[in-house]
Amino acid sequence: MRVFFVLVGLSVTTFAYAHDAPSGWKYPNSCCSNLDCRHVSHTAISERPQGYIIEATGEVLPYADRRVRISPDGEYHWCSAAGEDHGKTICLFVPARAY
């Protein structure tokens, strides 16, 4: 019985951690179902006149798109459907612009 409670405790801990960014802030529930969001390299996202480009999919998110949000840690974080590398974007966290 004790093993059961330890396993349940570990699964709850893992569940909560999956909703956190590596730097410790929490991804909003509207962006993440505990597996959709992850930190991505600055090379995974590019900026063009038309908006942010998700390199893995070629998807374009205009700068004013409601899915684009300021990243609390100044890093890029991408939330895609089911956390897939080729999934549709749910949210994109970007560093604050200096201008």
Rank of each mutant, 00 (worst) to 15 (best):
M1T: 12
M1W: 10
R2W: 12
V3Y: 13
F5T: 12
F5A: 05
V6T: 07
V6K: 07
L7H: 08
V8S: 02
V8A: 10
V8D: 01
L10K: 02
T13K: 03
T14I: 13
F15A: 05
F15D: 02
Y17I: 12
H19R: 13
A21S: 13
A21Q: 04
P22G: 06
P22M: 05
S23E: 15
W25L: 04
K26D: 11
Y27R: 06
S30R: 14
C31S: 05
S33Y: 12
N34M: 04
D36F: 08
R38H: 09
H39Q: 15
V40E: 05
V40W: 09
A44Q: 12
S46I: 09
S46P: 01
E47Q: 14
Q50G: 00
Q50I: 08
Q50C: 01
G51E: 03
Y52E: 01
I53S: 08
I54K: 03
T57W: 08
G58F: 03
G58T: 06
G58V: 04
G58E: 04
V60E: 08
P62A: 10
P62R: 09
Y63N: 09
A64D: 15
D65Y: 07
D65E: 08
R67H: 07
R67D: 01
V68P: 04
V68W: 09
I70R: 11
S71Q: 02
S71G: 01
S71H: 06
G74C: 06
E75G: 03
Y76H: 14
Y76E: 01
G83E: 06
E84K: 15
E84H: 14
D85C: 01
D85R: 13
H86W: 14
G87V: 08
T89K: 01
I90C: 02
I90W: 12
L92E: 01
L92G: 05
V94M: 10
A96H: 07
A98R: 14
Y99G: 14
